[in-house]
């Protein structure tokens, strides 16, 4: 508790921004100075970026370290390897939870840059109507099931072989992130066959929609990101998370207003301490903006890492949600 109090002078949003940029450099350019963190990174460390510093686990899950037919075809060893990679992924998630999304993910940072650009222009942030938003939350689970189901079908020959890596083929990370390493080829149409052409047209369309969406709405892509679904499914073993003391909440609504994912549940919760929903990025903006001394906190298991306080809000001097 004493330590936390001393930390109050440090602004969490500044640390977060620093970590995000460091994460960006490691994930995007790590390979260029000999860093490669393996194939189980729980964020968009895109393998299509030349010289990247690790591989996104979603790629592995679809491909050579997934649980699909390729693992079965490789015999027991393949399955064991798949389990091993999953265990590593689960451990990384258990330790840091959605910090991977809010604090590390390079694609998340690009979205934050676009939001900053929107703010600089004074353009109003668009909201997604509540009913639409509720329907959209299902998309990430659909994508996740596609990631698990489609590659084995491709391996088994039921689907065309180019359905291997179905998610990567439509992931805007694949088209946008390599641009930062001077690689623009994934924006071109792939004329190999009808499947690849279809995928590349879809990717271009999705990239366009996402770029527009991400400019007008904070973290627009995260709404659809299968990582959020997958990490949320591992919530029972995740140590890091957001909790609320509903009996300390005065209902000012700051948490709801600064949330990049426009989550309302944190504001509305009146009973449960568990407010870590599937859309939460653990970015801690709500904890920063909460003027109640006990209401919100980010915890690692039983250890309270950062707790909301009125004094912290006063010292923020209006720098909310950066």
């Amino acid at each position: 508790m004493r330590g936390i109090r001393a930390m109050r002078a440090i602004k969490v949003w500044k640390i977060r921004s620093l970590v995000q940029h460091a994460g960006f450099i490691v994930m995007m350019y790590g390979g260029r100075f000999g860093v490669h963190l393996g194939s189980a990174i729980p964020c968009f460390a895109c393998p299509f970026v030349p010289g990247c510093g690790g591989y996104c686990y979603l790629m592995g899950l679809q491909g050579y370290i997934g649980f699909g037919m390729s693992a079965v075809a490789a015999g027991g060893v393949g399955l064991l390897a798949a389990l091993g990679w999953f265990a590593l992924f689960a451990m990384l998630v258990a330790l840091l939870g959605k910090l991977w999304c809010g604090w590390v993910c390079p694609f998340g940072l690009i979205q934050d840059w676009l939001s900053a650009l929107r703010r600089a222009f004074g353009v109003r942030e668009r909201t997604i109507p509540r009913n639409t938003a509720r329907r959209l939350t299902r998309v990430k689970y659909l994508l996740l099931s596609g990631i698990v189901v489609i590659p084995p079908l491709a391996t088994a020959g039921i689907l065309h072989e180019d359905f291997y890596l179905p998610f990567c083929n439509i992931c805007p990370g694949k088209s946008i992130l390599p641009l930062f390493a001077g690689e623009a080829r994934y924006l071109a149409l792939n004329l190999d066959n009808r499947v690849t052409l279809g995928f590349s047209i879809a990717l271009l369309a999705i990239t366009g929609v996402m770029l527009v969406g991400m400019f007008f709405r904070d973290r627009f892509f995260c709404v659809f990101c299968p990582f959020l679904a997958l990490i949320h499914l591992l919530k029972p073993i995740t140590l890091l998370g957001l909790t609320k003391e509903p009996e300390s909440c005065i209902g000012c609504g700051n948490c709801r207003r600064v949330c990049p994912m426009a989550i309302e549940a944190v504001y509305k919760e009146r009973v449960s301490r568990d407010v870590q929903g599937d859309a939460c990025l653990d970015c801690a903006s709500c904890v920063e903006a909460c003027p109640s001394d006990f209401a919100l906190s980010i915890n690692f298991s039983k250890l309270r890492l950062f707790r909301s306080s009125r004094d912290y809000v006063a010292e923020l001097k209006g720098k909310f949600g950066r």
């Binding site: 942030e125 207003r257 003027p291 809000v313 909310f320 949600g321």
Partner: peptide
């Protein structure tokens, strides 16, 4: 302590409206 991440004109006014009403 009006927290406001959307710093457009509409964003600030709606943040103020919420802070003065539900808050």
């Amino acid at each position: 302590a009006v927290a406001c991440k959307d710093t457009s004109e509409f964003g600030i006014i709606s943040a103020l409206a919420q802070r003065y009403h539900q808050g």
